[in-house]
Amino acid sequence: MTATTAPTADLDLARARSVASRVPDPEVPCVTVADLGILRGVERDADGTIVVRLTPTYSGCPAVVAIEMAVQAALLDAGIDARIERVLSPAWTTDWISAEGREKLRAYGIAPPVGASGGRRAFFAEERIACPRCGSEATSRISEFGSTACKAHYRCDACAEPFDYFKCI
């Protein structure tokens, strides 16, 4: 193929992808929307408009609108006009969090989700959650429901620090 007939690379779209994927989560700013797996795609629609597809973590996550606005704002700052689309299917699970995202969570002091989504726990069953600070598995659950919908509250019995656990759903 000659240069004149080759399709021109869509530089704006590539730039939109790169800008969108670097937007941090407002409640867990150590990870980006791409790390969390809530950025479902950046494409052009039939009219040529750039469409950014995002999905919520929890149904009632109050950060959903904040995340959409943050992505929109980051794109505007970069001079990119885009439409944000909220997609519900397929539903997000913690399996969508990347390996890099899990490591960033741990480094930030949040224990990343343990196990694969869909595992069922019996009543009163305790999971073995490693302390993100000292690595000890001697930890206790303080509350199944923590500071945000996606987190539970734990305490390390070895180093005595409290910490958040990113719940596996």
């Binding site: 919520p56 929890y58 149904s59 997609v87 519900l88 299917s89 397929p90 539903a91 997000w92 699970t93 989504s117 069922r120 726990r121 009543f123 009163f124 199944e144 429901f145 719940k167 759903i169």
Partner: peptide, 25 residues
């Protein structure tokens, strides 16, 4: 769309069920 809402809600209700079941016991 309904299937997507349901897939997420199922996981949320699993937490409600376990939390409240434990309290009732």
């Amino acid at each position: 769309t309904l299937a997507g809402i349901a897939a997420k809600a199922e996981k949320e209700m699993a937490y409600h069920l376990r939390h409240c079941g434990e309290w009732v016991i």
